[in-house]
């Protein structure tokens, strides 16, 4: 018990003093996850919106595929990215394995399907609602897309936040492709796993506290945007 109490107070003091080592890890985590989210949004928003707006043969197949990809276990994604980036793999010559870039790639693969699927759902629903009005006005597809994205903006922000929440809390994929190298690829989740197994509970707890704080903040934001979305949509 003594140990726990000590670990806790040490953890809090680490967080409180913005310990340099701690902050390095937090910053890398945030940087990797935000970069991955941005790339996932660049791919997922247009793709999801296109799937939600249009009807073409094979569309249903793509939707099923995206939904299936959404359920991919992170370790499997990590493994696949590892194979691609390893020396023997097709992209081995890029020498990306065990770098932050490799972690960004793994997280992007992980969250792009999520962003795409959620965006499709949101855009499709709004499109059904607006469709006849748009047709009646003879609006160009580009204008339709812009209007849908704009009117769904609060919902789409929650999609981005959900992607970020998933990325930052993920451990399986980044540990495989990043390797948890100190000062290079050590992020919050992998550091927690390592420090816990080493018995350094203070650092693990400190990271855990920050991770929880981030998760709570993201959730609070999601809830806030969701209620804004609802109130602009209806009464």
């Amino acid at each position: 018990m003594q140990d726990f109490a000590e670990s806790f107070s040490l953890a809090f003091s680490l967080v409180w003093s913005f310990d340099a080592h701690l902050m390095e890890i937090v910053w890398l985590s945030v940087r990797v996850s935000i970069t991955a989210v941005i790339i996932a949004l660049i791919i997922g928003f247009p793709l999801g919106a296109a799937l939600g707006m249009t009807r073409f043969p094979g569309r249903q197949v793509i939707i099923v595929l995206v939904n299936a990809l959404m359920g991919l276990p992170p370790v499997v994604v990590g493994l696949l990215v590892y194979i691609m980036l390893s020396n023997a793999g097709p992209f081995g010559w890029l020498r990306l394995l065990y770098s932050p870039t490799a972690m960004i790639i793994a997280q992007t693969v992980l969250i792009t399907p999520i962003v795409t699927a959620l965006t499709r759902e949101i855009v499709e629903q709004l499109h059904q609602e607006y469709d006849e009005f748009f047709k009646s006005l003879c609006i160009s597809p580009g204008q339709v897309l812009a209007t849908l994205l704009w009117d769904a903006r609060y919902n789409l922000i929650t999609v981005a936040l959900a992607g970020f929440g998933r990325a930052i809390a993920e451990v399986g994929a980044v540990i495989i492709v990043g390797g948890n190298i100190n000062h290079l690829t050590r992020v919050m989740t992998t550091a927690i796993a390592l420090e816990t197994s080493k018995g350094d509970l203070a650092l693990a707890l400190a990271l855990g506290i920050i991770l929880m704080g981030l998760a709570l903040a993201v959730n609070a934001l999601v809830m806030g945007f969701r209620s804004t979305a609802r109130s602009t949509a209806f009464g």
Binding site: E129, Y130, E132, T147, D151, T232, A233
Partner: peptide
């Protein structure tokens, strides 16, 4: 065309 059920933008 004025629809029976009006379609209004979320604006």
């Amino acid at each position: 065309l004025l629809f029976q059920r009006p379609v209004l933008l979320r604006r």
